[in-house]
Amino acid sequence: MLTAAIFVLIVMLILSAITVIAFSWAAGSGQFEDPADGARVIFDDDEPEGEPTDPNLSQFSETKRK
């Protein structure tokens, strides 16, 4: 089982190295930019942020409260 453990260790090191390289590339090429904007993509002009999209919650709508 020692050879098996060494085998696993080597494979894990290789995979970890790939992971580190992948993340470095990702961070460098801007994959993690604009985290806040990323959260906003679920809204659009017709269903904007601040507006519940369940009519049961229309009382909580920002536009209605005006």
Partner: peptide
């Protein structure tokens, strides 16, 4: 992750945590 913010109209608290 889609329905909770979409229903209440408020974006997910931390996108970075999601990653």
């Amino acid at each position: 992750y889609y329905l909770i913010p979409k229903i209440i109209g408020k974006p997910i608290h931390s996108y970075y945590l999601s990653a």
